[in-house]
Simulated scan of single mutants.
Amino acid sequence: MHITPIECFVSGDIRFNVTARVMNRSTLTANFQHSFLECCDHTGEIRIRCDKFGDKMKEVVINGVYTFTHLVAEKISQEDRERYRIPIEADHQLVFTEKSKSIEKPEMQELPHRMYNFTKIDELRKQIGDGTKKDRAMYDVIGMCKKVVEIHKNDHDTNEIELKLVDETTGLKKGFTLALVGQPAAEFRHMRKTGKFPSPFVVVAKNGRLQPRNNRIESGVTNMVLIPSLCELPNPWLSQRERYLKTWYKTAKEQKNAEDKRNEAAPKRERDADDSKEPGGALKRIKEEKN
């Protein structure tokens, strides 16, 4: 079987085979519309569309290595790239055909993982605050999600989901909004319905689009977000960052809870001290507490 490197694909009727690591994948819908994989090998990254034959990716897991056979290459139009904010830089995408197969290759773990260039959340807030960054700037972001907000723009569906993210640069109070619009919102709802969803959880977004309003970054129409803890074969580098954020968040929450308890106790101590200064104040307080 001839394997074609990702960087060598060209449009045409030729059927290609590719061996690559799955960096991310969409959720399969009933009719397989908008189903796709994002994959990489040593030469680059590529998107594999599965609109008509999504059943062929049922057993595919994120970060697994597979050989995908009988694929057809087609050029990605600039219109589609802008509309769907496709994070893959390749000019072409691959499409499953009726003869395509997904063959697992666990022995080929040397293939690279997706690379991220994360921007800390506080830096994103500063760029919006000082007016130096305008709409359409793209960033990779990772953060701890402390709140999920579903926004209903009609009576039938959730059109948008907002994830409130924090990291060690913002603390627990100040954060940033990752807005899931369109397909990412549908993907996220599906993941939450599985019953395996962790809380709180770490979220990763590739090529989110910075918005100069409301401290938010948008995932795009079909640019999926990644929940590292839900990956069956986690990316080692992402796992390290995920563990750090979880440890930071747990410690910050414990410190905040301890501070809240001290603040609650402070007024009571002040009242006790004031009562003690008044003649018979302490005895009066004891009687009041008994009553």
Rank of each mutant, 00 (worst) to 15 (best):
A185G: 07
M1Y: 03
P184F: 13
F32C: 04
I76Q: 14
E278W: 07
A30N: 05
P212N: 11
L178E: 07
H152M: 15
T27H: 07
R269K: 13
T69F: 11
I62G: 04
A20Y: 08
L111W: 00
M224H: 06
Y244Q: 14
S26D: 07
G208W: 09
G131W: 06
Y139A: 03
S100Y: 02
S35P: 00
N214I: 07
V72W: 10
F197M: 08
M224I: 11
S100W: 03
N159M: 13
R216W: 05
E74K: 03
V149L: 14
A179T: 03
N17V: 05
H152R: 15
C39P: 02
H2I: 09
K287Y: 11
G129C: 08
C40L: 15
N257W: 11
F118A: 05
G220K: 07
A185D: 06
R21A: 13
E74T: 04
T67K: 06
A252R: 06
K105W: 03
H42A: 05
V181G: 05
R285Y: 05
V95Q: 11
V149N: 14
K126D: 15
G208C: 14
N235K: 04
L165R: 01
E123L: 09
T27L: 08
G44Y: 04
Y116I: 10
N63W: 01
R25M: 15
Y116W: 11
G280Q: 06
H92R: 05
A258I: 01
A282G: 01
R213M: 14
F201Q: 02
K261H: 02
E107L: 12
K290P: 00
E123A: 12
S199Q: 13
R241K: 13
L28T: 03
E232Y: 00
F96I: 10
D135V: 05
R243V: 06
G129W: 02
K287M: 13
L226M: 15
V22P: 09
E162A: 15
Y249P: 00
S102Q: 04
V10A: 12
T19K: 00
E45W: 02
N159I: 09
E110Q: 01
I3F: 04
Y116A: 08
P198N: 11
E45H: 04
V18E: 02
R49F: 14
A185R: 03
K253V: 14
K56Q: 12
R81E: 10
T169D: 14
